[in-house]
Amino acid sequence: MSKKLTLSTIKESNKKYSQKKRIDLPDGNHVFIYPDFSPTKTVEFVRELLMEYLNKEDNGLSKTKIDLNSWTVLSLLYKFADLGIPSDTKKKILAFNELLEYEYTPLIIGGFTTESINKLKATMDNIVKNIDLLAKEQNLNDSDLIEQVIKTETEKELAE
Score class of each variant (00 low, 15 high):
residue 15 K to E: 14
residue 27 D to L: 09
residue 41 K to R: 10
residue 55 N to V: 02
residue 56 K to E: 11
residue 55 N to C: 01
residue 52 E to W: 09
residue 16 K to A: 09
residue 44 E to P: 00
residue 51 M to E: 09
residue 56 K to V: 02
residue 46 V to Y: 02
residue 46 V to P: 00
residue 14 N to K: 14
residue 26 P to S: 09
residue 39 P to H: 01
residue 26 P to R: 11
residue 52 E to H: 14
residue 11 K to V: 05
residue 54 L to R: 06
residue 11 K to F: 11
residue 33 I to V: 13
residue 18 S to T: 15
residue 22 R to L: 15
residue 48 E to D: 11
residue 21 K to N: 05
residue 44 E to K: 07
residue 20 K to V: 08
residue 11 K to S: 11
residue 22 R to V: 15
residue 20 K to R: 12
residue 39 P to M: 00
residue 10 I to D: 03
residue 42 T to R: 06
residue 17 Y to K: 07
residue 16 K to Y: 02
residue 28 G to R: 05
residue 50 L to I: 10
residue 32 F to M: 13
residue 14 N to G: 07
residue 40 T to Y: 07
residue 37 F to L: 05
residue 47 R to D: 10
residue 33 I to Y: 07
residue 29 N to I: 00
residue 19 Q to G: 06
residue 41 K to W: 01
residue 11 K to D: 09
residue 31 V to P: 05
residue 56 K to Y: 03
residue 19 Q to H: 15
residue 35 P to M: 09
residue 14 N to E: 14
residue 55 N to P: 00
residue 53 Y to P: 07
residue 54 L to F: 03
residue 56 K to G: 13
residue 12 E to H: 11
residue 14 N to L: 14
residue 21 K to W: 04
residue 31 V to H: 06
residue 15 K to G: 02
residue 28 G to D: 06
residue 43 V to Y: 03
residue 45 F to L: 09
residue 14 N to Y: 13
residue 50 L to Y: 10
residue 21 K to Q: 15
residue 17 Y to E: 08
residue 36 D to E: 13
residue 57 E to K: 15
residue 55 N to F: 04
residue 48 E to M: 08
residue 32 F to L: 13
residue 20 K to H: 04
residue 10 I to W: 06
residue 29 N to M: 08
residue 44 E to A: 09
residue 32 F to T: 08
residue 31 V to E: 03
residue 15 K to D: 12
residue 17 Y to F: 15
residue 44 E to I: 03
residue 15 K to Y: 07
residue 48 E to S: 11
residue 51 M to N: 06
residue 51 M to P: 00
residue 49 L to V: 09
residue 38 S to K: 02
residue 25 L to C: 12
residue 43 V to K: 01
residue 49 L to I: 09
residue 19 Q to W: 12
residue 44 E to R: 04
residue 40 T to E: 09
residue 19 Q to F: 14
residue 37 F to D: 00
residue 45 F to T: 02
residue 27 D to E: 11
residue 45 F to A: 04
residue 19 Q to S: 13
residue 22 R to N: 10
residue 36 D to S: 04
residue 28 G to W: 04
residue 40 T to C: 01
residue 27 D to I: 08
residue 36 D to N: 10
